[in-house]
Design a protein around this nucleic acid. Structure first.
Lengths: 359, 359
DNA sequence: GCTCTGTTAGAAACTGGTTACTCACAGGCC
DNA sequence: GGCCTGTGAGTAACCAGTTTCTAACAGAGC
């Protein structure tokens, strides 16, 4: 059943460009105008078009007007890719965070987004899903697509970050301080925050604290825990109970039972989400806050002031971290030094979830 | 907003003094390896290196190994810009939202980020600061830097979006449905959500509702208000009081007084943030919820379940919107159709902030 | 032994901008 | 009038990849 002889020859003709099926092959976004077309339409060279588009003053007003008219008429938009290639920069910076659902990182995201936006820069965002390995892989990938990177990496080992700082530069680290890192870091003084919390609580007569632990791998958690242990060790007659927990609402909610069992009169939660979960859990168990138990958070998320009762917590300048991260990155991108590392001092916000220890 | 509030410089050693003033002039990111250097080192042509890097099978294994070794030795990383130019695509997509502080958009951001990440695509994010004009300007700008865009634009006029759909394509609209738009839209059935809420409340005997209005320009607000008015008009003996409010915690908090004055037995808040602000405000005024007044929200933000009392609200699939937006965009980028518009049906979540109307 | 065919890899032409260099021309000065 | 200078615009060489086209070569078939 071979039909050999009757082969149709029709499809041999010039496969001419078919505007139909969307760009399977060519790099042709459409009939998009290029600088050459504009140049041709305006009767000038590509160089002149480029000059006009970039506001160079060395073009006669009359010619410039002609070029602009041609560009307008053709709906010309310069190719970002070509521009990046020629200039060696993309006009984009990156932010990599572990978890976009966490208000802590949302704050940095906003601050950075606004600062970068004001400077006409685009922002690339990647989420590492709380995975130490991902944090660095995504950072490298994101950095390749941009001119600089802001990284929140609570899990990657110090050493790994030091190794990477070259490849990532210009590079700013946030919410963490890695000794010997060749990049500026913007961090929060966790120890000071915990100490403020502890003195507030001991001042109210509390002698038995429960700490609702954050995720094991979190560097903030490690610092807060260490500060807590140090405080406990330095205060005679003081008991610290460490309760495994987590970083989300549900974790705190689930920890209410254990808190009650351990007999602490105050709970220091890893963060505000945990604290507010605990608040709800305790409420369900009929425990009065702060009558029976005091509760504190950390971070001062927007919501912390609307829990019942409003949460005593430690406030950290989330947006400010983002804004300053931009400033640092900008400086680095201009070949300046990134300046000194900064450790933001948190501020204790006493609201209504803490009160005198029951006698 | 002083940057200075509690920051302390650490005197660490000079961070990262780059080799010389960074790229003031040249497009030279450093001594970065290019494809030509790799080719030279491996003793092959650039074409061959390109083939190896892209996994083409038409290169002899032995040669390929040599190329890979050379690339490794030189720390070669292909230039994203050059690649984008040659291929005509960037490997990046964009998301533009009005407000990154809003959990509604955070949900889409996460869903989209994860879906795009899984497909190896980068995500560009821009925030339009609740400004109708910005929404479209940023959208165009973001689109130029990427291969497609997901846009949440509650404020731009319908007409403006229709005009733009060509320039933005591939383009997916979320949280909104614009008649005649040449792009798929993923929206939420606001009317159904409001109706669910209203029947729930009338079923509990409520006859006088207060609506805490969202921002005037918000299209969601307009739809919710219209649905509410329609419901009121269709139910004899039913009163609707519209109270100007906003979209944030504080707005709801401030609205507690007016709610009390107007004598409504139930309040329908524009969203969960407003509702939870109102909850706190009412609590402060000694009003019992739901004993004296019932309160409902909209959106089901993560926090809604941890208010006191937990908030009755309407749940919408925020992350799912982001995921599906990716699917649509992906289809469009491959020249397929974007499929039908989808209107997600919200789900009523009855928690403890609503109860029988007081008699 | 010669042609045909299939596989590999190189040459060169793209992608769309920017910019150093050059040159033509006009005006000022001697 | 000739020379010098400054301005405006074009030429062409980049930027760093991808891809089409072509050619060399080896093995199969006659």
């Amino acid at each position: 059943m071979r039909a050999g002889t009757g082969e149709r020859a029709e499809d041999r003709e010039e496969p001419a460009s078919q505007p139909g099926p969307a760009g399977r092959r060519g790099p042709r976004p459409a009939g998009a105008a290029t600088i050459s077309r504009v140049a041709e339409a305006a009767g000038v060279s590509r160089a002149t078009v480029s000059r006009v588009m970039n506001g160079s003053t060395t073009v006669k007003p009359e010619l410039a007007a002609r070029v602009r008219a041609a560009a307008q008429a053709l709906d010309y938009e310069p190719s970002v890719a070509a521009r990046s290639l020629a200039l060696g920069r993309t006009g984009t910076i990156s932010l990599v965070v572990p978890d976009l659902a966490n208000p802590l990182f949302q704050g940095v995201l906003r601050g950075l987004s606004q600062a970068a936006g004001k400077a006409g820069r685009q922002l690339l965002v990647a989420e590492s899903n709380e995975d130490a390995e991902e944090e660095t892989i995504l950072a490298i990938e994101a950095r390749r697509n941009s001119d600089g990177i802001v990284l929140a990496s609570p899990r990657a080992p110090d050493e790994r970050l030091r190794e990477l700082s070259d490849r990532l530069a210009p590079f700013v680290l946030v919410y963490r301080d890695v000794p010997g890192l060749a990049a500026p870091s913007l961090s929060v003084d966790n120890v000071a925050g915990i100490n403020d919390l502890v003195s507030h609580l001991t001042g109210l007569g509390h002698r038995h604290l429960a700490y609702l632990s954050g995720p094991d791998a979190s560097s903030s958690h490690a610092l807060r825990l260490a500060a807590l242990r140090a405080a406990a060790a330095g205060t005679p007659g003081f008991t610290l109970t460490e309760l495994p927990c987590g970083s989300m609402f549900d974790d705190g909610h689930a920890a209410a039972g254990p808190v009650l069992e351990c007999g602490a009169s105050a709970v220091v939660a890893f963060n505000d989400m945990v604290a507010s979960g605990a608040l709800t859990g305790l409420h369900e168990l009929g425990v009065r806050v702060p009558g029976d138990v005091s509760v504190t958070g950390f971070d001062d998320i927007p919501f912390a002031r609307y829990t019942t009762p409003p949460l005593t917590t430690v406030s950290i300048p989330k947006n400010e971290l983002g804004r300053q991260a931009w400033d640092r990155l900008w400086a680095l991108m201009n070949g300046e030094s990134g300046g000194y590392n900064v450790r933001f001092q948190p501020r204790l916000l006493i609201r209504d979830s803490t009160g005198p220890a029951p006698s």
